[in-house]
Amino acid sequence: MSLPVHTTGVVGRAETKRGGGEETLSGCFFGVARMRQLSSLLQGLARSMALGKERKEEEQGTVLRTSGTLRGEGSGTLAAVWSRRGEKGTNQDCSVVWEGFGCQEDTIFCGIFDGHGQWGHYVSKAVRDSLPPSLVRRWQEAVTLASLINGEKKLCHSQFDLWKQSYLAAAAAVDEELRRSRRLDAVNSGSTALSIIKKGDTMVIANVGDSRAVLGTTSDDGSIAAVQLTVDFKPNLPQEKARIVQCKGRVYCDEDEPGVHRVWLPDREAPGLAMSRAFGDYCVKDYGVISAPEVTQRRITARDQFVILATDGVWDVVSNEEAVQIVAATPEREKAAKRLVQWAVRAWRRKRRGYAVDDCSAICLFFHHSPPS
Results as ranks from 00 to 15, higher is better:
55 R>F: 01
59 E>Y: 06
60 Q>R: 12
60 Q>N: 11
60 Q>T: 12
61 G>C: 05
61 G>N: 05
62 T>G: 01
63 V>M: 08
65 R>A: 07
66 T>E: 15
66 T>P: 00
67 S>Y: 03
69 T>D: 06
70 L>Y: 10
71 R>C: 13
72 G>A: 15
72 G>D: 09
75 S>V: 15
75 S>G: 09
78 L>W: 11
78 L>S: 13
79 A>T: 14
79 A>P: 11
83 S>H: 03
84 R>P: 00
86 G>H: 11
86 G>P: 11
90 T>E: 13
90 T>I: 14
93 D>C: 07
94 C>F: 08
97 V>C: 13
98 W>R: 05
99 E>I: 03
99 E>H: 14
99 E>S: 15
101 F>L: 09
102 G>D: 02
103 C>R: 12
103 C>N: 13
104 Q>C: 12
104 Q>L: 14
110 C>G: 07
112 I>W: 04
114 D>I: 08
114 D>F: 05
115 G>R: 09
118 Q>K: 14
119 W>E: 02
120 G>Y: 03
120 G>I: 03
120 G>D: 05
123 V>C: 10
126 A>L: 01
126 A>M: 07
127 V>T: 10
130 S>P: 02
131 L>I: 06
133 P>T: 04
133 P>I: 08
136 V>F: 08
137 R>G: 00
138 R>L: 12
140 Q>D: 12
140 Q>K: 05
141 E>G: 01
144 T>G: 01
144 T>D: 00
144 T>M: 07
151 G>F: 04
155 L>V: 05
156 C>R: 13
156 C>H: 09
158 S>P: 00
158 S>D: 05
159 Q>L: 14
160 F>E: 06
160 F>N: 04
161 D>F: 02
169 A>I: 02
170 A>S: 15
170 A>F: 05
171 A>G: 03
174 V>Y: 02
175 D>I: 07
182 R>A: 10
183 R>N: 13
184 L>F: 01
